[in-house]
Design a protein around this nucleic acid. Structure first.
Lengths: 142, 142
DNA sequence: CTTGAACCTCTATCAGCTGTAGCTTGTATC
DNA sequence: GATACAAGCTACAGCTGATAGAGGTTCAAG
């Protein structure tokens, strides 16, 4: 029987985060001691590790919920898990593209600025005027 | 004298967002009509455009606050604006690196999965076991 | 003068946690 | 069995950066 702190250490998840996952129904309600403390078994540990690893790979909690449902029913076809992963891959690729456009603008901004007074600062000038930009870059709604 | 909706249309910022920027002190408190509606001038429009463009380039509202302060005092050296932009560039580069590691893992995951039953789904297997990963990827705290 | 689009304030909501306050429990040591 | 204290508990506020909705008021065109 594992205490919440042990789960926390073994998975690198904060104690509050584990309680939060229980609250939103990602983790099952943990069993309790007579005094009311949560106790876990190896299955709980595995589930939490799955969640954390998925988060590290950028999956949303909603996607993780779907993936866990799939993992709980081993008889189904895995094509759904596959498509969740593909969707995630697509999103990551989109974000990379957007960030690369940003990077380009930022580099140009920084490179052209020669450290004179604010009045002729290239950085501020570019920020003031979007038409100075070469690319479409938009991090809002990323 | 411009109404809030005009500012909204001219900068592509939602009306609520403009009010929010006023609330958190990014935009100055707008003048009001006798009936209490906000009215703006061209300077306000420029300021909002600056904020929006900075957001599109991924700057945080705190960074934008600093940049606006600098832009308001044209006599200073621009080295501070420069370093804010460099910091932002560094963060963008970090995020790109992290996302590329993610992308690599996701591609491998998806490529190796051949659509059989969930029981032998490669996607789910990788999620279960981080040791199957080739790279360090961590999107948490990005 | 009437209409109705656009404005107002206030409050709640989203993801995904994180932190704090104030209290209780479990366990190791004596 | 007593004691100390780390680790647990609940409940709630706060973070970023907005966005949505309810319910009411104002402005400007016709």
């Amino acid at each position: 029987m594992l205490a919440i702190g042990t789960l926390s250490r073994r998975t690198g998840t904060k104690v509050q985060t584990i309680r939060y996952y229980e609250e939103i129904g990602l983790m099952n309600e943990a069993g309790r001691t007579a005094g009311g403390q949560r106790r876990y078994d190896e299955k709980d540990l595995d589930r939490l590790a799955f969640i954390r690893h998925s988060r590290q790979l950028g999956f949303s909690l909603d996607s993780i919920r779907e993936l866990l449902d799939l993992a709980d029913n081993p008889a189904q076809s895995c094509s759904e898990a596959d498509s969740i992963a593909r969707r995630q891959l697509g999103q990551v690729e989109q974000r990379i593209k957007r960030l690369q456009a940003l990077k380009k603008e930022l580099r140009r901004m920084v490179a052209e600025c020669d450290g004179d007074s604010v009045a002729e600062c290239k950085v501020l000038e570019v920020l003031r005027d979007h038409s100075e930009c070469l690319t479409e870059h938009n991090e809002i709604g990323a």
